[in-house]
Design a protein around this nucleic acid. Structure first.
Lengths: 171, 171
DNA sequence: TCGCCTCTAGACCGATCGGTCTAATCGCGC
DNA sequence: GCGCGATTAGACCGATCGGTCTAGAGGCGA
């Protein structure tokens, strides 16, 4: 069940790190989400938390890259693709209770200082997505503007919808 | 020197939390940045880290709000104001080594679970900035799009410029 | 000069952090 | 049925976390 455990760990890391950021995501939270003990983590990811989160970032980047490929295949423009990605993610955020911002956004906003692999994976992810989007024929500047809009919209949507329950003192 | 110590603590919190997010910002890092011992922190902010970071968020929101007021006074449009804020912040990020994303962005992306005051302050900040921008006459939807762009651009700029040194293994 | 009150200083606390290590368990070829 | 590598299980470690508490330094009014 090696591959399965690996995948479960990555999925759990994606979930927890999205919610709390790198530093806020404790190993115990990730492990209990995965339903696996610490030994499994360090067997599959000898590099520990850093390696796991880096793998999670790679995984997410791969998924988004594939989605972009799909949308390009259908002939959508850069702006249309970004709009679709926003809609996709917003729908998913709504489904999961508006608690996530997307793994890459959370990592980018609060980059941990002691996680070189994660930092590298994050940069690689950004490069991959940029390259994927450049296949629409858009200019790098346009791509940066579009992805900037994407990140920002997701962060704001989360802020607007995530926490009302958190700071409502009334019944 | 009460007021001074308070201000120093808030400034230190702004700096450190911007860099590492709420969970990544240790009290010891904040205190050493402020040059004050723990006793001072809990004297001025009995609520501890949560209260301090909430105050820091209020402070930053106030500064940005004032800046928006200035720009509106000069007669700039929403888009022009956002462009100016992006330029302001980018210049400041360049000056500080591209390590910050802005306090509010960092908090919004990785909302801590156990910091109700900070969460409340963050929502208040968002509301204040939205209100300030609405004085340009722009629609709420336009304001959301514009502030989304602002957040995202800053996050991307940081990602692009912050970490090259972090993952360069070469001398 | 004396008391008092504000603020600084940092030792100390339990909890939790990421990480290591050993033992038990599992599945599979023989 | 047996041995063996792969995997799980979790006790354990030092470091650090946020927070509390006592002691004393310093300024100010009487």
């Amino acid at each position: 069940m090696s591959a399965d455990a690996r995948a479960r760990l990555i999925a759990a890391a994606v979930t927890v790190v999205q919610l709390r950021g790198y530093d806020g995501a404790g190993l115990s939270a990730i492990l209990s989400a995965a339903g696996l003990p610490k030994g499994s983590l360090y067997h599959h990811f000898p590099g520990g938390k850093d390696e796991l989160v880096a793998a999670a970032a790679d995984f997410v980047a791969g998924e988004v890259e594939a989605r972009i490929g799909e949308l390009i295949g259908v002939g959508l423009s850069l702006d249309q693709i970004i709009a679709r990605l926003i809609d996709d993610t917003l729908a998913w955020m709504a489904a999961t209770g508006w608690r996530s911002v997307g793994l890459l956004g959370a990592l980018a906003a609060c980059l941990p200082s002691d996680a070189p692999r994660t930092a590298r994976a994050l940069h690689a992810a950004q490069a991959r997505l940029h390259a994927a989007l450049s296949r629409t024929g858009a200019s790098p500047v346009a791509i940066n503007a579009a992805t900037g809009l994407l990140h920002g919209r997701l962060a704001l949507a989360r802020l607007a919808n995530d926490t009302p329950a958190d700071h409502t003192t009334e019944t």
